[in-house]
Design a binder for these strands. Structure first.
Lengths: 274, 274
DNA sequence: GGCGGCGATACCGCACGGGTATTGGTGGTG
DNA sequence: CACCACCAATACCCGTGCGGTATCGCCGCC
């Protein structure tokens, strides 16, 4: 299955084999064998290009979650056997920092609190960490992050604001509709990487984190619609205007289903009591 | 991992090997190898009995979901390639029959509706079918069924009633508190099988489905607290009394996260519009 | 002290996964 | 139009690993 996922992602046997650090012929045979075992054609082998069949697309999605599940099983078992188990909490760098610090302090004050290791990562990463067992619990932000497959508890809902370079014509307005923000030709919205790390096409600059984003905005090269709690991270060369019709953002605490860990349960309980 | 799960469930190498249809020595070696690979002791080998370590218990739980995930991947791929894909809907036999028939009729009237195959199974089974890919969507009942790990949409909430033999002293009451029902010494509550198919200890009779249950009640051998919609299935030799303080039961439609099937989405949409 | 149950070890054979060399088929190109 | 470049499939070989049988070692029990 790992082999098939590699081929399905690369759409090229040679590159997939390279990525898997094996030769190309064994890879061809392995995929053929999988197809025989399932009794299903997974790939259309065109002369010049490879494409997924419908069944292949289904398997790609299902196999990813299956592979994540076995990775998670290994990792969680290892960590359960470690001397001091602790809890790994993942969240996007720079997001919900106020809520996070309150949570950590409140939990640390609980009797029997475990050690909490905080992992700050890029956008889209916390879900992956949670899915493959590198993290036990995460702070996510709907609707930006996908919470499918996790148990969640809502913590906080907030409105969004547009961040502009200081002195921009719109900066004095009391509020701006979303459509107007999207139409600012010389201040395009940035492009965030997708789950696979590649960027969508478009006019805006590519960004990886909020630091980059805010620097680009200060330079007058972009603008962005972000949750209002991020204004604590802005400097004087930014202006902020509410966008009432942008979707509200809800911070949620998420954990893998079937989690039986007392530490995770306590952490969630503490978070909902904030 | 399959091997380890078998050993962990049987707590006996010999029986586990038999269940896996292999000899015992390869099984011993495979588990040892897994322990070496993870760097973790999974089993305490006592002289007479085997017990799980803490890490072993974690792996048992995680490995089950991982194995279900790969089974689901295979099954869903096969079904995606079948001539007429269709949707498999699982639910407990006898539960929510009115809602189910309404749903099936409403969905069949939709343009582009796929064929729906209904699987009626015992209590606790629909979750398993959904998890391992034998079903695409299920009707579950909170809090009886566990919905952890699925996406769900609430459909209907109802109160519970106690079902008694006709002519029972309590049958004329307008309502009965839960505590009083649990105290009926000669009418014990029945025992349902757990996820693994074994029954908990206790005084009540073992039951597998509602037909059995209602027959036992009519015979004066048990009573039961059930959602009020089940009264449509009762006959004259039953009496029904509301139990106001029993938890309400919510019928939900559940599907695996990341489900991209149009048919499942349509079915869910139809269900919420009922 | 001997016996029985059970998991671990020893040893063997085959099948499968991986490697190299090569073929075959299909577009692009001078 | 022929030649070339590219890429997946096939042919063939080798080593590892998994499964099988036979046996041992350990512990509890009659």
């Amino acid at each position: 299955m790992r082999y098939f996922v590699a081929v399905a992602e690369e759409l090229h046997f040679g590159r997939a084999a390279q990525r898997l650090a094996i030769a190309q012929p064994p890879l061809s045979r392995a995929v053929q064998k999988l197809e025989r075992r399932l009794g299903v054609v997974l790939l259309h082998r065109g002369a010049r290009a490879i494409t997924l069949t419908e069944a292949g697309a289904v398997l790609l999605r299902e196999a990813r979650t299956a592979l994540d599940a076995v990775e998670a099983a290994e990792r969680r078992t290892r960590r359960a056997a470690a001397d001091q188990p602790g809890v790994v909490l993942a969240t996007k760098a720079g997001a919900s920092s106020g809520l996070l610090s309150k949570l950590l302090h409140a939990y640390a004050a609980e009797p029997g609190a475990a050690a909490v290791e905080v992992v700050l990562c890029g956008p889209g990463q916390p879900e992956n960490l949670l899915r493959d067992g590198r993290a036990d619990v995460a702070l996510l932000h709907r609707p930006y992050d996908t919470t499918a497959g996790f148990d969640t508890e809502d913590l906080h809902t907030e409105r969004q604001v547009v961040v502009l370079p200081a002195g921009h014509p719109l900066a004095d307005r009391a509020h701006v509709p979303l459509a107007e923000v999207a139409d600012l030709a010389n201040l395009p919205l940035p492009r965030w990487p997708g789950r696979d790390g590649s960027y969508p096409d478009g006019p805006g600059p590519q960004v990886r984190d909020h630091t980059q984003l805010f620097q680009l905005i200060a330079l007058g090269l972009a603008c962005a619609v972000v949750p209002e709690s991020l204004r604590t991270q802005l400097r004087n060369d930014h202006a902020v205007v509410p966008v009432p019709d942008a979707p509200t953002v809800t911070t949620v605490i998420a954990w893998p289903p079937h989690s039986r860990s007392k530490a995770v349960a306590d952490l969630v309980h503490t978070a909902t009591r904030l």
